[in-house]
Design a protein around this nucleic acid. Sequence first.
DNA 1: CCGATTTTACCGACCGGTCGTTAGGCTTAT
DNA 2: ATAAGCCTAACGACCGGTCGGTAAAATCGG
Lengths: 206, 206
Amino acid sequence: MGNMKDTIRSIAIELFFRKGYFATSISEIAKGSGIQKASIYYHYKSKEELLFSILKATMDDLTHDLKENLAGIEDIESKIRAAVHGHVRFHLERQKENFIANSELRGLTAEHYRVIVEKRDEYEEIFQGLIRQGREQGVFADVDVKILSYAILTLCTAGASWFNPGGRLTVDEIADIYENFIVSGLKQGDAPGMARARHADQVLAR
Amino acid sequence: MGNMKDTIRSIAIELFFRKGYFATSISEIAKGSGIQKASIYYHYKSKEELLFSILKATMDDLTHDLKENLAGIEDIESKIRAAVHGHVRFHLERQKENFIANSELRGLTAEHYRVIVEKRDEYEEIFQGLIRQGREQGVFADVDVKILSYAILTLCTAGASWFNPGGRLTVDEIADIYENFIVSGLKQGDAPGMARARHADQVLAR
DNA sequence: CCGATTTTACCGACCGGTCGTTAGGCTTAT
DNA sequence: ATAAGCCTAACGACCGGTCGGTAAAATCGG
């Protein structure tokens, strides 16, 4: 913790995670950092800029990691598995930043919001491309790419809100569970079996 | 909109959804309701109580719906399908309230927070019971009940954050997609195929 | 190497504004 | 007359942000 700018940053991450962006005051961040609140403004020009710098770095690292994880992998199922595994890993290992990134976008100015959403879209498109490819190659069933990519990303991301480091399962074990769950979901066909038809009747009869 | 208490409530839901609880002021809610902000306090004794009443009603309705949806269904796969379908439906149809229920728990006092979390836990346990039953009956694979129940619930819930009423797909179409995705995920075995093993090697080699 | 100057990193005091909430009074329908 | 339903006015607390200033460190000219 040599430099104060990083200290402020990590205290802010901790507080934004625990109490939320709007419920966290500059003076709390200052108190946690061991300085006066005016001194925060030497390092960051506003509270919103502090939030933005956290979100921006998180999104950049996320996309960078994904590209790195995919490099050198050939077949599409392995690619999807690598992408999912890495996504889960990243979100569990950097739990707090990711939680903030998924819940505090409303704290951003219009321009900063646009920047973050662009980065998120870029990331999502890589994912959607993988699913589309898998579908075209016949590895995955004829699934709805958009809906399922949202589903998969949210699914993995959600880990960040309940994951307990040092709990029953390790990061890689959880990532494995998700990986299998998702791949088998992608491989399924759309043929509704008996059970499903029976259920539909029951629901419609209400 | 005969009565003012309900008007205030629905305006609050709209604003909490669009701007967040902390970023919404009492005077905005008052302005939207066409009264002065002091008049809000004739109907609700505090801003937090207004939030709590929204969340409480939402959770109560959710659990009530689930029990109703499960009544009379016998086999476990149909039960899970009904539960998932109903969960998605509820979250898409009452999108705003559910979004608030999933993002603004931090605005509650300690006691109110406890009440809502208890209701959520009760709901989750019904879901986990269904998965456990399906596993014991051999209908589902030997999956991790806790992790997958969290996964399933978050997955369906997430719809509330991106769903666009009047968009490409109807509520029931989306619910069907999720239903199939989840059931096939639950039925999968844990045997890693070739692709998965190959991928694991690549990741571990880094 | 030394003195002068600039830059870095911080502080205490304060500002304008907004917030949730309360007190008390005025209508209107019963 | 009574109470419901709403109003105006004001409160104290706190917020993000700015100001002028300061001590120490770094930089630079001779």
